[in-house]
Write a protein that binds this DNA or RNA. Structure first.
Lengths: 212, 212, 212, 212
DNA sequence: CATGAATGAGCCTTCATTCAT
DNA sequence: CATGAATGAAGGCTCATTCAT
């Protein structure tokens, strides 16, 4: 994409990273094999060791949370109405998790690793999840108002994240229940809209209850 | 064979199943090893293959959804008020997923396997998830009223399940963010109550919107 | 050798240990491969892991210093004349190091590992070398008399051990210099006799010098 | 190419050789890795193969026995008393093997390779060991007199070399037995003096016995 | 209905070496 | 006379599985 050429090495690195993201997001860290990743990247088995030291290093570099951060940044700069921004956030987050053409593989890997700690989980928590919680927490604070307790607010946050992640985690199951299921751009937006509606109502109730 | 005493073999089977549930719920199907399960069950390495054919067979038999079904049955017979029954369901489900002393290991295994299809997933879907969806769908129908669309209702169901499963899936992450975190009985009830409040408000909004 | 039968497993273990001793004494710990050892023992690659945990464990068990200790014990019980016992010791030690038919492979492995520390060196030092130094030190004390200093005595010990080990360490070199070279029983005794003569004269001089 | 400045390439070569000597003497030929040598020499991974063909070639060129030969030459020109020259030889040889500041790395490599034949052993034997044996043999002949047999004389030579090499070979072991052990210049001279005393007495006895 | 022993495929990694520039 | 990148063989080890008793 840059107007400069990439070295051969960088191309191999990229191919390796792409193949790794694909494999890790599909089979998990343990389930994916270095051999298969190299095969898909049309590189030698030793290429992973050469470029990334080992499998752990490959995972660490495959995790690129720039899109996730960019999304939050753009969201923060968007229209000041916090409800609208929450809707926007949910939509963007769902697209990252589900969209088959433009989804963020690192986000999907992250989703998988939630339940299955790998050596990279510390980095994931530090660089992606903690900032995400901060961001979402502040946004919810704006919506809920100052009187809602910290704990209540955090639980609202978990409710929202849980709804979003569910569609990723349960994808294999949902596909078995509804074989025709496909997440195209429009369907994702419908789901996101539902989650936003559902959650804004939930937040409204929770914050109202606290007020009263 | 008598309906009183268990044969030695049956005892071994039971120990094997218990150890397997423990291991699968902790490390996942792939992460758990047959050797470790046999060691914990104080059985021979070949015992798994002897009693259950192979690792897949062990998983299939380790999955016992009787408690989950019993819970649904009890729920259906409980107080007729559907909102209260939803609260009850969420509480019971959360206890199964999180309670460290009385939780249902098969439910936890199920939660893990959602995202990582194993040969047992078909059985899980057929015997546990599909009935659960049916049950929860009907309950929500009662709450939301007849005018709410099928799709909307299903999305509400996903919102609820997503919130519940989140606490199980994200446990390793949440524990890193809040090292003091422990799910005792009381805390689980608090969370369940939140999810119920949050969700009933959400359902109310969704069904109301549909009505209008 | 015992009048009881050995289990199949024990036979495999023994074959594995024999092959390992052969390989380790020939190629060193690092140079010997588990695969080759298993091939020679007509066992599966995983047999080493099964019986000994890993390569280190195989080495640890391959080291059997019982013959070395038995030799020292027999020596201590032999004729009281310490000079004669030193001659006996040198002869027995040389036979262990060099005799192609009755030599002690563990001793040869030990000789190799002197210069190339492996995870087993601590055990070797503790169980074989330290006792050997104790034994030889006491024997030399008897020969040299009480007035010789500890340091001098230890250096005499090193002189003796150095002469003995030289023939093992330098074997590849000596064989290139004298291609006809073969260590048969008789030739080893001649060498041992030389070392004994040479060393007793040396000790005599050192202890005399100290006295004067 | 001029007899003043060295080309960049020659400097790299030298750094490579120095690093190789260091590595080979520390970890042995097999234990040392080309990558580590290149890293220490701040050269490219391919530099070794470029300059020396392969790892074997690097070893062959790293072996520089000029110091050893110079030592023998100087010894031959020194004071005519053969006993004194033997003392001198042992001292110089021990310094080469042990002195931490001025020791000869090639000599240490040679000592290591005695027991572990590498493709360079033929060269080592031809260029270093055979000449050394010749030199030492002649010196001992002068000391022992004409009547001592060839075989006896050679065994005396082995006794001396064995004593010297022992301190190098057994260094890892001796250091474990006596953790405080350090070979400074003075301590080496003490050891060398012991070996000389011990050996001259031994030679005296052996040659006397032969005479008688 | 049980077991200790053995199996072989496959994993990640390391290494000396070679290729293309 | 040099280099960064790539290679493939081989290493130790783990695992679910099967064999012989």
């Amino acid at each position: 994409m840059t107007h400069e050429a990439k070295t051969v090495s960088e191309q191999t690195r990229e191919r390796l990273l792409d193949a790794a993201r694909e494999a890790f997001s599909q089979h998990g860290f343990q389930g994916a094999t270095v051999r298969e990743i190299c095969r898909r990247a049309e590189a030698n088995v030793a290429a992973v060791n050469y470029h990334f030291g080992n499998k752990d290093g490959l995972l660490a570099e495959a995790l690129n949370f720039a899109p996730l951060k960019a999304m939050q940044l753009a969201n923060a700069k968007a229209d000041g109405n916090p409800e609208v921004r929450l809707r926007l956030f949910i939509r963007d987050f769902m697209l990252m998790l589900l969209d088959e053409t433009n989804g963020s593989l690192p986000c999907r890997i992250m989703a998988r690793e939630l339940a299955d700690p790998t050596p990279a989980l510390d980095k994931i928590v530090r660089e992606a999840i903690a900032p995400l919680h901060d961001f979402l927490g502040k946004l919810l604070r704006e919506i809920a108002g100052g009187k809602t307790g910290e704990a209540e607010l955090r639980r609202c946050m978990h409710s929202i994240l849980g709804q979003c992640l569910y569609y990723r985690h349960s994808h294999p199951v949902l596909q078995r229940l509804h074989p025709k299921l496909r997440y195209d751009h429009k369907k994702i937006e419908t789901i996101a809209e539902h989650i936003a509606d559902f959650s804004l109502a939930g937040i409204g109730y929770i914050s109202g209850k606290t007020c009263a």
